[in-house]
């Protein structure tokens, strides 16, 4: 008799833990062929709130780590992901119905993207800082600091898409709450398992699965969220209403892209600089 395999329960990833939705809800996720793949947790507004709390709690510690340390942690995520690449290739093939070559390309790109961003952690400051020659006896420098807690609506690719939006946010010292791809959420939760075992402190990345239309407005209007990335929002009306809600506390908003994004391309630094604030410090020079 064939062995009965042990199926995984996909839950949320909040504060380094994997809780079910407090609402007790879940939704059916089918594979590319329309067969049941698993149930995903259907996060509620309270889960979103808890995730923000976790992200805020993690922000102080994460943002005050040295850039070198953050760099190593992000690189560690790449290492662990590399070790589990077969699992991700298989999940991507099942969930999205892509060829082995395409699934492998996505996993390769996701790993390489993490490595690319890991290297930025201790360089972006040097690229965007300035020593300002003010007209007076003052030492004056401007340096970037992380914006804070960033809410993200992740694009469709549950691995590469999510990595591409999350890695730059955390590399720069921010923490985030990500709403995973609604249609293909499972791989994002598996990615959460990778993060949970990669020296990444709990709460730096929090992954919610469920309805974007339901959860995103709570994040957009949340007064303890400092920025929102609308990359994965495909409905222009929803995007506009989220941007309007984000104005309540003047969140930094990254609007949804104009068209399809080719995530295989090497990105620029804009996803890093979007979540950085410039701090300028003055001090007199004298004896």
């Amino acid at each position: 008799m064939a062995r009965i395999d042990v199926k995984k329960t996909y839950k949320l990833y909040i504060g380094g833990q994997f809780p079910r939705s407090e609402s007790g809800r879940s939704y059916v996720v089918n594979d590319a062929k329309g067969n049941l793949m698993a149930n995903a947790a259907q996060a509620s507004r309270k889960d979103a709130r808890d995730a923000v709390t976790a992200a805020r709690a993690a922000f102080g510690g994460w943002s005050s780590r040295t850039a070198y340390n953050r760099s190593q942690v992000v690189y560690r995520i790449a290492e662990v992901l590399e070790g589990r690449r077969d699992q991700f290739v298989a999940e991507l093939r099942t969930s999205e119905g892509v060829t082995s070559a395409r699934a492998n390309a996505a996993v390769d790109a996701a790993i390489d993207r993490l490595v690319w961003y890991a290297g930025w952690a201790d360089k972006i400051t040097q690229v965007v800082s300035s020593a300002n020659p003010v007209a007076g006896p003052y030492f004056n420098i401007s340096t970037p600091e992380p914006t804070g807690v960033v809410a993200v609506v992740a694009p469709t690719g549950p691995l590469l898409g999510l990595v591409s939006v999350v890695a730059p946010i955390i590399t720069t010292g921010n923490t985030c709450v990500v709403i995973a791809s609604e249609a293909h959420p499972l791989t994002s939760i598996t990615l959460g398992e990778v993060m949970a075992t990669s020296d990444l402190p709990g709460g730096v990345v929090n992954v919610l699965t469920g309805s974007v239309a339901e959860i995103a407005p709570w994040l957009a209007s949340h007064m303890d969220v400092n920025g929102i990335d609308l990359t994965g929002v495909t409905d222009p009306e929803l995007a506009t209403s989220l941007e309007v809600a984000a104005a309540d506390n003047l969140k930094r908003v990254r609007r949804a892209p104009d068209g399809e994004v080719d995530w295989l391309q090497t990105p620029g630094t804009d996803r890093l600089t979007d979540w950085l604030e410039t701090k300028t410090v003055w001090h007199p020079i004298g004896i």
């Binding site: 300035s130 300002n132 020659p133 003010v134 007209a135 007076g136 003052y138 004056n140 401007s142 914006t147 400092n226 506390n249 003047l250 930094r252 604030e277 410039t278 701090k279 300028t280 410090v281 003055w282 001090h283 007199p284």
Partner: peptide, 26 residues
């Protein structure tokens, strides 16, 4: 805060970036 004046205050210069965090704008 976007500008920190240490042992001075309210200094402005065209070479020196000025602007806020949070609800002070972006």
């Amino acid at each position: 805060a976007g500008v920190v004046w240490a042992n001075t205050f309210n200094k402005f210069d065209p070479t020196s970036p000025f602007g806020g965090y949070k609800e002070s704008g972006f």
